[in-house]
Amino acid sequence: MKPAPFDYHAPRSIEEAAGLLASLDNAKVLAGGQSLVPMMNFRYVIIDHIVDLAKVEGLAGISVTGAILRIGAMTRQRDLEFSPEVAQHCPLLREALSHVGHRQTRNRGTIGGSLAHADPAAEQPTVCAAHDAVIEIASARGTRRVPFAEFAVAFLTTAVEPDEIVTAIEIPLWPAGHGYSFHEFARRRGDFAIVGAAALLDLAPDQTVRRASLTLCGIATGPLRMTEAEQVLTGKRFDRGVAQAAAAAVKAITPVSDIHASAGYRRHLAEVLAFRALRDAAARCSARI
């Protein structure tokens, strides 16, 4: 058998799950298992207690209230990919999901699991950064809401404490007709991105940029908002030159260098993908008054 021995718990409620995490030593939450179980099979992690959230009531679901898309943490990526609410209100998430692993892993993988795992190249945290999402976290001590900017703390590390559970993701929506685009480069389709870029644009009828959001992944320990590039765009009439200037602004980053790509190559990819994402986002804007 691949993983080291562990005890398995299948709580039915958040309270029960939180109680287990508060009382057990070296316990870990199991969501879809598409990142945790490989790490267990490799014995990168050795866990004494697995708390499986699959049977917890009320943790999966997609709803839109006002300008907020609320997604239960245990919602499977496949259900998000095919959700009419997501397609209509948060098309960036839908586009990003097509890059997440493969259909066979999206069938099991959850959005909450991806956020809690916090792989530096992961697409779903990148969408959360782009949309300024708020992450809801529960424990026996109560529920708190953490802005995504404070959620990703370090490499594979989030603000979630060992006794806490990610319960929901709230995504503030952009106005209808906004432009969106997600581009990434990976060696093979479905592999981890070497670099990815997510763009959101709200353009006035005369193409003036009312609001811009540009986020990169695969560069640092978590998704990076490119605030300088956003400032280059905001208030300007969008055209190829403005998009190029904004993309050039991302070259100030200091990317990681590893076996997959050098820092220089990542910097090059960042500029190219940022430009493509902005260009495609602008093309998808349907101007509103």
Binding site: N41, I50, Q104, T105, R108
Partner: peptide, 21 residues
């Protein structure tokens, strides 16, 4: 993907799923 099976009609990696699940 060699271990792919259907769980409740959906494909899944049986190497990434515990029998208890």
């Amino acid at each position: 993907g060699a271990c792919t099976v259907l769980i409740d009609g959906r494909t899944a990696r049986s190497c990434l799923t515990f029998a208890v699940q």
